[in-house]
Design a protein around this nucleic acid. Sequence first.
DNA 1: GTCAATTCACATGAAAGAGACCACGGTCTAGTG
DNA 2: CTAGACCGTGGTCTCTTTCATGTGAATTGACGA
Length: 405
Amino acid sequence: MSKKIDSFFENYLKKSSMFVNKKALQGNYVPKEIPYREKQIEHIANVLAPALRLEKPSNLFVYGKTGTGKTLCVKHTTEAMFEIARKNNIELKFIYLNCKFKRVADTEYRLVAQLARELGEEVPVTGLPTEEIYKIFLASIDKKEQVIIIILDEIDQLVKKTGDEILYNLTRMNSELVKSQVSVIGISNDLVFTDVLDPRVKSSLSEEEVVFPPYNAIQLQKILKERSDLAFRGNVLDAGVIEKCAAYAAREHGDARRALELLRVAGEIVERQSGEKLSVEHIDLSEEKIEKDRVLEAISVQPKQSKLALFAILSKSMNNGNNGIDHIFTGDVYDVYKDYCSKAGVRPLTQRRVSDIIAELDMLGIINTKVISKGRYGRTREICLAIPNSLVPKTNDILRESLSL
DNA sequence: GTCAATTCACATGAAAGAGACCACGGTCTAGTG
DNA sequence: CTAGACCGTGGTCTCTTTCATGTGAATTGACGA
């Protein structure tokens, strides 16, 4: 047995890899050149430049859909600035926080605590009043004369969860600082996000705005070409592969990250099959695999109650005959859900909560829901499964097993 | 037939509770010199 | 005398319940032609 394993690894090592530098296809890779984003970078640089003279730069707001290079460009620019600042001994600091990550920066307390931590303060995870955390943070900044630029990625998530008070406090902080200055760069996927902001916050946060338009298919092709040249060994790509990737991604609002992922996963598939060439079919397989992984991953990490609700939806839609196109409503799901709860020995949640859970599942793209009115017969959600038919049995198994039903 | 009122079955919002986690300060206890 | 154990208080955070309000069109029923 161990012989077998050994020789497997030996062979694996001997096999020449498709990839020369797989990193070039990964999400966090920062290329030297960012094509089609010269204007945006220039704009960002212009806004931030005063920081090098220890003047407070304007707050900046960056919009654009996912995978349009927002984060990349901001990082690119700020890193370059940081280098310059370091060389010239300028007290300039960047703090990058992604508000999306749970338990890092998704509440006011945690955000400020994390900021303080980035500045080297020891801050407890919880237990202190938020006010206290602010004081610690302020004191830490104001130790010396410096400019601090806080980059809040996916800021819309933060505001959606906790309201815009944080941003108000953050942008207003300068009035309490004596020696140092703070600027905020907000990055958002949501284009209409600022509409929900308090006007005061809105005007102070978006003193300057940069918009990132989606890439079109041609631009995506160029990007993919550049990266794949870096990533893959010489001509392993079949003709048309790049074009297909680009087309897939362009369909999804020009998401370059997705296009690169598609290419990378396709490469991994070929490698696993010990193939030599990456062909157009591999892109299809890759697309399928990504979708499958995404769905199954999302499902298996759901908490028990969500799983129960999903299981109820699943069995309801299977009972209804084929592929759940028939209408399922919240009330029906709730009844079935209660049944499963008693079978699984779990106390059922209220309908109010289950309604929210259904909305959450919708957000995850596992189901699709639409609020409809059935006139005299009330208003409800029409629910149907959004997972591909081929995944339904597998999903069912996962749920059944983890709920021990 | 027309039109406003009614009605249903939830959706959606707001507030508040439960329980887990944690920090901090005060008090108690046991070990040390 | 002091370090550490052990409370009690007060804080955050997540998940949930409770209570309240909103809602869109099928249905109803009064009305008039």
